[in-house]
Simulated assay, not measured.
Amino acid sequence: MTQSIAPDRGWVPSACTLPTAEQPLRLAEFDALFADAVRAVARPEQTRLRLELVLGPEHAARAAELTARENGCCSFFTFTLTVAGGHLTLEVAVPAEQAGVLDALQARAATAAA
Rank of each mutant, 00 (worst) to 15 (best):
F79G: 03
F79K: 04
T80A: 15
T80Y: 04
T80E: 14
T80D: 14
L81E: 10
L81D: 03
L81K: 08
L81M: 10
L81Q: 08
L81P: 01
L81H: 10
T82L: 14
T82V: 10
T82D: 15
T82H: 07
T82A: 14
T82K: 12
V83N: 12
V83H: 13
V83Q: 14
V83P: 00
V83L: 12
A84Q: 01
A84V: 10
A84N: 05
A84E: 06
G85E: 10
G85S: 11
G85D: 14
G85P: 06
G85L: 09
G85K: 02
G85C: 05
G85V: 06
G85T: 04
G86N: 06
G86W: 00
G86S: 03
G86H: 03
H87W: 00
H87D: 11
L88R: 02
L88C: 00
L88E: 00
T89I: 15
T89V: 15
T89A: 12
T89H: 02
L90I: 07
L90N: 01
L90P: 04
L90V: 04
E91L: 13
E91P: 04
E91T: 15
E91I: 05
E91H: 03
V92C: 13
V92D: 14
V92N: 12
V92L: 15
V92T: 15
A93E: 14
A93V: 04
A93F: 02
A93Y: 01
A93H: 01
V94G: 03
V94M: 02
V94F: 00
V94S: 03
V94Q: 02
P95F: 04
P95K: 01
P95W: 10
P95G: 11
A96W: 03
A96V: 09
A96T: 02
A96G: 02
E97T: 13
E97F: 08
E97L: 11
E97W: 09
E97D: 14
E97I: 07
Q98M: 15
Q98L: 07
Q98T: 05
Q98A: 15
A99V: 09
A99S: 15
A99H: 09
A99D: 10
A99C: 13
G100S: 15
G100N: 08
G100K: 09
G100Y: 09
G100Q: 09
G100H: 08
G100V: 11
V101Y: 13
V101D: 07
V101N: 12
V101W: 14
L102C: 07
L102I: 12
L102W: 03
L102N: 04
L102S: 05
D103F: 08
D103T: 02
D103E: 14
D103N: 01
A104R: 12
A104D: 06
L105W: 03
L105A: 10
L105C: 02
Q106F: 05
Q106P: 00
A107H: 07
A107V: 01
A107W: 01
A107D: 11
A107M: 06
R108Y: 07
R108E: 11
R108D: 14
R108L: 10
R108M: 07
